[in-house]
């Protein structure tokens, strides 16, 4: 199969992007909402909106990078022709496990004492990432899991109807704030 044909279709990418967005946007909103009570006291509504604009735009960029990486890995890994349809399940499991691992790492970093970075947990990262990649490669071969992942990823597309318009608005706000 020519390399260009190994890339998934747009229809396959969207659910993976949506699942990625759910995790990426979700984590940031979780951290932002922790700050919101103090912002409500200190900042004007337009300043708070501006803060969320930055978050949305950066989140979108993160989603593009992560999804792009998953697409590239999907093309590079030795999936056979008949496994071409595995991409949604592969991408979804990679996104779930990979970003889940990042959530864990972020939490650990946040819990660490100032100037005592938890390098020890990062020492295992290559091993954990290899394991995640291996799992993502084999999970689609288990039919029940594959269907479950596909169904789940498909349902997360609804969130894009929320994330994308708000990101677009955020991008405009960010542009206006920084140009004028």
């Amino acid at each position: 199969m020519p390399f260009s044909k190994r890339f998934p279709t747009c229809r396959q990418i969207v659910p993976v992007f949506a699942l990625t967005a759910m995790l990426v946007y979700g984590w940031t909103m979780y951290r932002m909402l922790e700050k919101l009570p103090s912002w409500l006291l200190y900042l004007r509504p337009d300043e708070i909106a501006s803060n969320f604009s930055y978050a949305l735009v950066f989140n979108f960029l993160e989603c593009v990078v992560v999804s792009g990486l998953i697409v590239l890995l999907g093309a590079l890994l030795p999936f056979r022709r008949q496994e071409h349809e595995y991409f949604i399940a592969f991408g979804s499991s990679l996104s779930l496990l990979g970003l889940g691992y990042l959530v864990y790492l972020n939490w650990q970093v946040g819990a660490s004492k100032a100037n005592l970075f938890p390098w020890e947990i990062f020492a295992w990262s290559p091993f954990v990432l290899a394991l995640i990649l291996l799992a993502a490669f084999f999970v689609p071969r288990i039919k029940t899991l594959r269907l479950l992942l596909e169904a789940f990823a498909d349902r997360t597309i609804i969130l894009l109807y929320l994330f994308l318009p708000f990101t677009a608005i955020g991008f405009v706000v960010l542009l206006l704030n920084n140009l004028f």
Binding site: T28, E62, L102, L105, N106, W107, V109, G110
Partner: peptide, 10 residues
């Protein structure tokens, strides 16, 4: 604290 950006922050 934990960075607010899951990927870029880390």
């Amino acid at each position: 604290d934990a960075p607010g950006l899951l990927v870029f922050g880390l």
